[in-house]
């Protein structure tokens, strides 16, 4: 019987020549979700992905992917997964079509089916007109799209994306996110690693923040941000002083500061749930509101909170 968890990792440890790259991590990925590993370079993301995709032998711990044990049934795991590697690993001298054909033949997809999938996928990633172009002549975004198409060719249950948008320009990155969402909506579970905050935030159903080989915190992007309890509501009203007094009955409010422009209200709980009551309270006191703004913590704030440092300072 297949459970809800398509990836199960228990107490995974991995050493390289005496250096502990992964120091005992446990997590699960649910079927159908987009799960992100967020962390700086050298945090252990790639090591984990390499173990999950059977490229590195399992040293310690238990890992099941798509219902198969990576140590005992690596062949079954390989049949169930697709991988998009971090760097552009494309044979420069093969054409786009040959790249796909080679991959399909590696997985023994029957000829007619293979050709059909190649046509379909190249259309999806908008590389149809480039099918006879050698991969060395493709732009960075096209290369990455080709790799995603290649990773999807085998209809994997789980698609592993290692830093899928690293080095891409902002437009191309947004486009990649769309593809990844499309793929996920079509039923593929996505496991991605990234060191981009907004990527993890925008794409993921759940995130684990990883640093120094340990998972520091896991949750949905909302949970992670709400857990900081630092939502701030900005209010502009007809009468800020009276508005301030009217907020006295709301327990989640930690502090209120008055500024010439308006009020900033710091909230110890989820601000989006508290906001309607704030508005009701001010309106209830007969004070008109001209503007409301809710600022939630960003993933950057979350990362700084849990690791004690900025992600961009830790890049290798």
């Amino acid at each position: 019987m297949e459970g809800d968890d398509i990836i199960e990792v228990q107490d995974l440890k991995h050493m390289f020549d005496g250096f502990a790259a992964v120091r005992g991590i446990s997590f699960t990925v649910k079927r159908g979700e987009i799960f992100s590993f967020l962390g700086p370079n050298g945090a252990g993301k790639s090591t984990t992905i390499n173990i999950l995709t059977t490229l590195l032998p399992l040293q310690k711990g238990a890992v099941r992917v798509a219902g198969y044990d990576v140590a005992r049934e690596p062949g079954r795991v390989r049949e169930s997964i697709g991988i998009v590697f971090q760097d552009d690993v494309l044979d420069r001298d093969l054409t786009v079509w040959e790249t796909m054909e080679f991959h399909g033949r590696l997985y023994s997809i029957p000829r007619d089916e293979r050709r059909r999938r190649i046509d379909d996928l190249l259309r999806v990633v908008e590389l149809g007109p480039k099918r006879d172009e050698r991969t060395k002549n493709l732009s960075g975004g096209m290369k990455r799209r080709l790799q995603i198409a290649r990773g999807l060719m085998t209809r994997p249950e789980v698609l592993f994306l290692d830093e899928p948008t690293q080095g891409l320009d902002p437009q191309t990155r947004m486009r990649m996110w769309e593809y990844i969402r499309q793929v996920n909506e079509a039923g593929t579970t996505i496991f991605l690693t990234t060191h981009y905050m907004e990527e993890a935030d925008m794409l993921s159903d759940r995130i684990s923040i990883i640093d120094h080989g340990r998972i520091i915190v896991s949750g949905t992007p909302e949970e992670l941000k709400n857990a900081l309890g630092e939502d701030v509501v900005y209010l502009e009203t007809e009468d800020n002083r009276r508005a301030r007094k009217s907020l006295g009955g709301i327990g989640e409010i930690r502090s209120v500061t008055e500024s010439p422009r308006g009020l900033s209200v710091t909230i110890s709980a989820d601000g989006s749930h508290c906001l309607p009551r704030i508005v009701d309270a001010v309106r209830g006191a007969g004070i008109g509101i001209s503007s409301v703004n809710l600022k939630k913590p960003t993933m950057d704030d979350v990362f700084v909170h849990y690791t004690g440092r900025e992600l961009r300072d830790t890049g290798a």
Binding site: R78, I81, I83, F85, V89, H103, L106
Partner: peptide
């Protein structure tokens, strides 16, 4: 060295 072998090693071949 160019990382191309990973594609083959990660495949069921």
């Amino acid at each position: 060295n160019w990382g191309l072998m990973r594609e083959m090693l990660a495949s069921p071949m």
